[in-house]
Design a protein around this nucleic acid. Structure first.
Lengths: 178, 178
DNA sequence: CGGCACACGTGATAC
DNA sequence: TGTATCACGTGTGCC
């Protein structure tokens, strides 16, 4: 039958070239010292430039690390003031301080979790929600110093309906993810 | 009259192509995390990478200058300073449509993730953040129907500084957690 | 004239 | 099956 007009192919190739050339132009805009307008030279210059930047970054990072250690030393010496570090290591035996509030509105739930700022609290709650198949509609999490508070609005699967059920399941999941 | 055999022309063009491809290969060797083997993507990644390196250099230089002044003054001002900002945006066409935007402000990052409303998107991002040791200061997630958008403010570990690095690491983690 | 660099259309090919 | 990318040969303009 009639050939599927190859004009599409031509046009596609044209767009591809156009895109490529645009990328080349973008590359030119970020690489200084573009001696030749030549594409090959541009690529070569880009490579050298990247190598230069890499070396520079590495050098500066080493210097920064050095400076940081100095700074840490200074801090360690001058740490005569009151430090707010409590960090009672009672994580193991004792349960972490947690306050969990669950309210149901029809099939949806409003969940409020306030706890110590343990490591990666947000991922913990989100994992618990995921494991229980709660569909998150909206969530906020804010952490300051030693405390973190999370508010979540989500849809609850029928099997978990009932504030007590939901709260228990959430607490179990939260403890489990220690 | 008889055509002056264009074999020279052909051969010249062939060598030119060969040279260009070699340059492309060289560029690949200095740009990390080249997701696609595609030439256009390589150029785009190279541009992002160069921008990122530039920002990193600028940031580190500012920090070095600041550290130098601190060292000279021997004064301990709070280090929660704001350093100049830079921006990076790209789009990743994987199994799911994802748009990830990362902005660095000194040691902190502002992360914006917009994606399809796949199952449990929030836990995914939070897991990625946890795995990368980002300390989340504030986060919001809102989902409606087929789309979900997440905004996060978090502290970035030194090893991950650089928008390109951070973005790549996040993308990798997000893909991994399918 | 000839070297050089580019854009174009085309066939092949992978997903 | 269409939709991507790529390499190739060719035409064209510029020193």
């Amino acid at each position: 039958m009639g050939r599927e007009t190859p004009v599409n192919h031509v046009e596609a190739e044209r767009q591809r070239r156009e895109k490529l050339n645009h990328r080349f132009y973008a590359l030119r805009s970020v690489v200084p010292n573009v001696s030749r307008m030549d594409k090959a030279s541009l690529l070569a210059d880009a490579v050298s430039y990247i190598k230069d930047l890499k070396a520079k970054v590495e050098e500066l990072e080493a210097e920064a690390k050095r400076a940081r250690k100095e700074s840490l030393l200074e801090q360690g010496i001058s740490s005569g003031g009151g430090t707010p570090t409590s960090a009672t290591t009672t994580l193991c035996g004792g349960p972490v301080a947690i306050e969990l509030d669950v309210k149901l509105l029809g099939p949806d739930a409003i969940i409020r979790l306030q706890s110590e700022n343990m490591a990666h609290a947000p991922s913990r709650l989100m994992l618990a929600l995921r494991d229980l198949d709660l569909v998150v509609h909206h969530a906020t999490v804010s952490g300051i110093k030693e405390a973190v508070v999370q508010d979540v609005m989500a849809r609850v699967p029928e099997a978990l309906l009932g504030e007590y059920n939901l709260r228990s399941a959430l607490l179990a999941r939260l403890d489990k993810g220690s």
